[in-house]
Each structure stands twice: as C-alpha cells, then as structure tokens.
Design a protein around this nucleic acid. Structure first.
Lengths: 209, 209
DNA sequence: CCGACATGTTGACAGTGTACACATCGATGC
DNA sequence: GCATCGATGTGTACACTGTCAACATGTCGG
C-alpha cells in the first residue's frame, strides 16, 4: 500500500510541465504514456488495463472514465506507436526532398523496417489488428503518406484508383512482411541488410511497372 | 452440469471410426478438432484452453497431459489451419502442373488470399505470430512450397540464396498483406477481385526482375 | 491378481476485463 | 459564501482466463 503511494508519487514526478497537477489534470494522456512505456519494456503482454492503471498510481476502474473499454486504451497506445514511427518517416523524407518518388517510397519502407527491428515490442502494437478505429484520423499517418507519394507515380490527369491501391498494397504489405520475417527469423544484421536491399529493389521494380 | 454431460455425449458421438472409445483413445486429436471448430465459429477469442476442453467434455487440466502449455495447444490448432490451407494450395497446383513457375506462384497466392477471405477466423490463427515452434516440420508447408517454385526461377547451377530469400519474402509478404487489407477494409467482392489481380500482376513483375 | 503408469478430476491461486455503488473534489449557480 | 451537481477516482465483486498440486480411476504388463 505504501508502495502503491510510492508508485503514484514517482509517476507524478514524471511530468514535463512543472505546473500540471497530473492526477486531476490529464489522466488520459498519462495512461497512454504509461502504456507506451509498458509496451517498450514488457511487450504486448505487458499492456494491460490493470498494469497501466497501476503504473499511473490509479485504480483500474478509473480507466473507464476515459476509455469505453480496455481495447480502446490499447488501441490508443497503438496509435501512439504509429505516430512515433511516422515521425521518423517524416524526418527521413525531409532529407530526401526532391528525390524521385520511388526513392522516397524506399526511404519510407526502410524507416518502417528499421523501426520494427529497433523497437520490436512497440512494433507489435503497430501491426496489431485494429479492433477499434482510432479516435482521430487527422494525425500523421503512414498510409496517407504512402498514398501521397504513390500518387506522384500516376500519369498526370489520369489517376487510376485501382492502380493506386495496388501500388500502395504492394509497398505496405511487402515492407510489413519483410519486417516481421526479419524480426522473427533473421538475427544476423548483415543478412538483414542484404535481404532488405534485395526485397526493396524488387519492390521498386514492381512499383514502377 | 447435466448440460456438461450432454456436450460430452455429443462429442463422443462425433468419432469417425465406429470403434474408438474416444476418451481413452486420442484426446489430443479431439482437442485440436474442437479447437478448429471453435476457431471457425468464434474466432481467435473463442480458442481457449477451458473452452476447448469443455467442448470435448473434459476438464481443463486434462489438456496438460497432452500439451506442455495452452499456447502449445493453440499452436497445434494453428498448425492444423495451415495444413487445411496447404491442401487447397496443392490441389490448385495439381491443376496447374506444367505451367511456368510464375503462374504457379500466382496460383498459390490466390489460394492464400481466397482462404483468408473465405475463412477469416481460421485465417487469424494462420497468421498468428508462432509463439511456439510446431512439433512436426515434415507436414505440407506453404513456405517450403513457395521455396520450391521460387528455386525454379533461379538460373540452373547458380542459386543465389539471397535472391531466393528476397523472392520468397516478396511473394509471401505481399500475399499476406493484401489478404489482411482486403479482409479488414475492402468488403466489396468486385473491388477485391480487381485489387488481387492488380497486386499479383505487379508482384509477378517484381518476381521476374 | 496386482502393482505401476497413463490419463482425467477437483480445487485452488493469481491475473484478466468490466460493472456497480460509493466517495471526493472542483466549478458553478444562487 | 454556501450548497449543489457533475466529473473523476475508489472499492468491491463477478465471470473469466491459464496453470498447478493432490487425488482418483482405469488399463495394461508381469
């Protein structure tokens, strides 16, 4: 019990802004923060309503004041993970501005795979089947990003939606599949490098066809 | 309770061989059967140790006489699902015997996607991260099947393992990604058809490059 | 026949999500 | 300034989950 208080105090001390009273401030955000941290350290199994609540020094039932169900909380954490990934993508794209679309798509793919291999536990949330739709669609989104670049591959004034969708799926699913297989079955970094290059080369060819 | 017995009796009546006393026969297989059925009807959430045991009219603890953990049981059910999928693949390949490797790879991809869309709940087991390795590797396996065909694409006497792995990943991950996206986001059968054709065309180009 | 061994049962424990009744605290109307 | 009310957090309970240890049963080999 005293240890419960301890945890609470520790969480309280964590805030970035010096002012925010934390508990009666924004629990919702704090829950997502805790969930992200828990996902980083313990993986998907660690991301549970009771654990997240405890990490915030709060009872499990308190969660339901901010999320209709535990799945929604987990979905929010997953959304957070996707945003983190998207940030790296945008950073890379800034450095690749002006290069041809294919090169930029490759940059996005490399970012996706790099994230999956660097933060495998967080990544397991990213690739989770989204059981509940995200509350806010307007956040930086990898799919939209890919779509924008793919659109540049279309002949001007003649956008074929099926062709666009096909290219998007080829790009996304190959990156995802490659990331998963590398994470699970290819430990050697050098082998990973070669496989990434090989597959992305091939995807590039398929995309331009 | 009486209903428990009822369930047990129902399961008992299910046996194919007229002789087998069932309970003191092969519970292990019966558990996997029940798991498959449960997966078909209730999806991943329905596949649980206690439910499977109950469906066999048996206590939950009995499971642990045949599997070291519940995850192993679920893994066995997943393996069963993969075998079912592989059967369709082999059937299709028989019909496509003699055609060029690319065509046969496409046949495999179409089988994978068709299965995912026809039995989405069972498919959710197939694509599950395998937490425990399968007991028997010698069963008909989609990965090996793909590998065999991909090998035919290699120039004779010059098999480049990296190239082979790259082609395999491109084939597998694009099929998987496409299946998942179609299942979750594209309800219209006609749109599905078009997207499948479009993506597989593109993958074919990438594979031959 | 009888003991040993494989198999199944019972009951328990810890942990999970979730709902309901209650407490508390802050803002807001009078 | 005080009371009231709504938002937020607590405590407790229920139905579920996987898993284990102790016990029962039934089948087969010596």
């Amino acid at each position: 019990m005293s240890e419960r208080r301890e945890t609470s105090a520790a969480s309280r001390g964590r805030g970035s802004a010096g002012r925010a009273a934390y508990h009666h401030g924004s629990l919702r955000e704090a829950l997502i923060d805790a969930g992200e941290q828990l996902a980083r350290s313990d993986g998907l199994d660690g991301v549970t309503v009771r654990r997240i609540a405890a990490a915030c020094g709060v009872s499990a039932a308190a969660v339901y004041r901010h999320f209709p169900s535990g799945d929604h909380l987990i979905a929010a954490v997953a959304q957070r993970a996707r945003e983190i990934m998207a940030r790296d993508m945008f950073a890379r794209l800034d450095s690749a501005a002006g290069r041809p679309p294919i090169d930029r798509l490759r940059e996005v793919g490399e970012s996706y795979i790099a994230f999956a291999l660097a933060e495998p536990r967080l990544f397991s949330l990213v690739s989770m089947p989204m059981t509940t739709p995200p509350d806010r669609i307007d956040d930086p989104n990898a799919a939209d990003l890919v779509r924008d670049i793919v659109l540049e591959l279309e002949p001007p004034g003649d956008v074929d939606e099926v062709r666009v969708a096909g290219r998007m799926m080829l790009a996304q699913s190959s990156a995802h599949g490659l990331a998963v297989i590398l994470r699970d079955f290819v430990p050697d970094p050098q082998a990973r490098e070669m496989l990434i290059a090989g597959v992305l080369d091939r995807v590039g060819v398929g995309l331009e066809a």
